[in-house]
């Protein structure tokens, strides 16, 4: 499943990236790499972007970006 399909608060593990865009590498450098635990903390009041927890800190990214990340529930 893709990151944005995850339920709120559900802990998951990053599997891989789907495709490649200009931001893929930036996301990896921010710590979104395979094997890392991730969860969606909340959505912004207007529904997008979302706030996730990764490597012990909080990061916000848009649905479009989250659609590039394949995850599996833990």
């Amino acid at each position: 499943m893709l990151l944005f399909e995850l339920e709120l608060g559900q802990l998951a593990e990053i599997v891989c990236f789907v495709g490649e865009t200009a931001v893929t590498q930036r996301m990896e450098e921010m710590g979104l790499i395979p094997g890392e635990e991730v969860k969606i903390v909340r959505y912004a009041p207007l529904g997008d972007p979302m706030e996730i927890e990764i490597k012990g800190y909080h990061l916000s990214l848009r649905r479009d970006e989250a659609a590039q990340i394949k995850v599996k529930r833990k």
Partner: peptide, 12 residues
């Protein structure tokens, strides 16, 4: 630009 990028840290 290619795509609008929004990767923003939400610090404590």
């Amino acid at each position: 630009s290619q795509r609008p990028v929004f990767l923003l840290e939400l610090p404590p």
